[in-house]
Write a protein that binds this DNA or RNA. Structure first.
Length: 433
RNA sequence: GCGACCGUGGUGAAGUGGUUAACACAUCUGGCUGUGAACCAGACAUUCGUGGGUUCGAUUCCCAUCGAUCGCCCCA
């Protein structure tokens, strides 16, 4: 009986992995540029960590967590996101006491949510993100938003929609939440069942509802802008003005709420709309949090963070053919010809490995026709043809797969020729793209 | 959690209640002792996701189940 992969998981194989590595390298580099160092935390945590951070009223905690009891009867969960773990380790290690603030952490790794898989959504997926903890300023909010924006730019995304909103501070939100409850209570009988539930749990979420009839009602709802405290309003204006000055385009979207309970003040999401109009939800998003550190047992420090879904990035990059030039190729494919000692061919191949070039040999003698097909499949730059004629003279026949030009090279001279010819070919290929 | 649609070889796929399950690509063998094309001949699914039912007979009809894909919800 064949064993299938677990629903919502996926294998990443061979050349696809090259794309993932390319994306991850690019993201890590951006984070490093902004001064964020990578933190690696476990993928299993005490369930309590997430119920206290992500929030008991969030869908993520209520119905999407992989929760189980271990043999010591501890309730553990696979992490549905990484922010909580980063904050936990900052608190555990009391980094706030010794490090300069803000503490800047980046992360990359798997997260798990039990949802129905669909386009750009998996039960195990990878997140990249950053957290800046311990500085309460529009400067750091803008920095994180800018970092995300430029991360997408570095991956050659062109049409990014950046949505921004503010949820205000505690005072603003309490007042606003009360006003929303009051408003929607009068209309709730004609609204969808989800909204009826949201009215109890988190009325802010009603603003996100996609049901057409409900949207009409939502249009008349009170707006957060009218309930913002002076401090929140000023802070948001400063953030937005700074982004303007940085030449980052964004849309203010008052319906943007986000499903994790710990956010306050600025929140944002990055969206991509394909030329054919298709979307796959948010590529990434984040926001500011005021009480998360305290909630997890640390001092009263605020933070701001963002995260991206690697699979979603990869999906767009693959379908829009971004980054197509970036993949490493096989430099040499070694082809044995005729009746020949394959060990001698292997020695030549080993020599090329020692020089540091990606290289493979055919482990069997096949018609050259077949070997050329294999070389093509491997996107090899050069064929190295070796038969008894070559072995006798201590040479190899070197053929450029693209131009089909062919020359005979002395084995003793191979290192020098290879260096020159590979470099030239990489440049030439770059120019034809 | 709700809904739609699908499940035939390595891949893309056609098909029918009844005897050899099309076709194409890929792969392999040979025609052709060493150069990527083309051509020719041949090989390649004891079997149509899994389990059950209807039937003389099921890949085809029915039910269940699992899985893929997509939409809603939510989010990455």
């Amino acid at each position: 009986m064949e064993v299938k992969p677990v629903k919502g998981t996926h294998d990443i194989l061979g050349s696809e992995t090259l794309l993932y590595q390319r994306i991850e390298d690019s993201l890590a580099k951006i984070a490093h540029t902004y001064g964020y160092l990578e933190y690696r935390t476990p993928i299993i945590e005490h369930t309590e960590l997430f119920s206290r951070s992500v929030g008991g009223s969030s869908d993520i905690v209520r119905k999407e967590m992989y929760t189980f009891f271990d043999k010591g009867n501890r309730s553990l969960s696979l992490r549905p996101e990484v922010t909580a773990s980063i904050i936990r380790t900052i608190v555990n290690n009391k980094l706030y006491a010794s490090a300069d603030l803000p503490i800047k952490a980046s992360y990359i790794g798997p997260a798990f949510r039990y949802e129905r898989p669909q386009a750009g959504r998996y039960r195990q997926f990878s997140q990249f993100g950053v957290e800046a903890v311990g500085l309460d300023s529009h400067l750091i909010d803008a920095e994180v938003i800018s970092l995300g924006y430029h991360a997408l730019k570095s991956l050659e995304f062109k049409d990014i929609t950046l949505k921004i909103n503010t949820l205000g501070d505690d005072e603003s939100r309490n007042n606003y939440r009360g006003a929303l409850r009051e408003y929607f209570t009068n209309h709730i009988h004609s609204m969808c069942s989800d909204c009826q539930e949201r009215l109890q749990t988190n009325p802010l979420r009603i603003l996100d509802c996609k049901v057409e009839e409900d949207r009409q009602i939502i249009k008349g709802a009170p707006r957060i802008q009218d309930f913002l405290s002076k401090a929140s309003k000023e802070r948001f204006d400063k953030t937005v003005n700074l982004l303007d000055a940085l030449n980052i385009k964004f849309d203010i979207d008052e319906s943007l709420v986000r499903g994790l309970d710990y956010y306050s003040e600025v929140v944002f999401e990055y969206h991509y709309i394909a030329p054919d109009g298709k979307t796959i939800g948010a590529l990434g998003g984040g926001g500011h949090y005021s009480h998360l550190v305290e909630e997890l047992g640390g001092p009263n420090l605020s933070g701001v963070g963002l995260s991206f879904g690697i699979e979603r990035l990869a999906q767009v990059i693959a379908s829009e053919r971004l980054l197509s030039e970036a993949f490493p190729l096989l430099a040499f494919y070694v082809m044995p010809v005729g009746e020949i000692d394959l060990e001698k061919i292997y020695h030549i191949t080993e020599k090329i490995h020692r020089l540091g070039y990606p290289c493979e040999m055919s482990y069997e003698v096949r018609p050259l026709k077949t070997l050329f097909k294999r070389a093509e499949r491997r996107a090899a730059l050069f064929a190295v043809i070796v038969g008894s004629e070559e072995l006798e003279k201590n040479v190899i026949t070197l053929k450029n797969m693209r131009t089909k030009e062919q020359s005979v090279v002395a084995l003793d001279d191979f290192e020098r020729v290879a260096e020159q010819v590979v470099e030239e070919e990489i440049i030439a290929i770059g120019e034809t793209r």
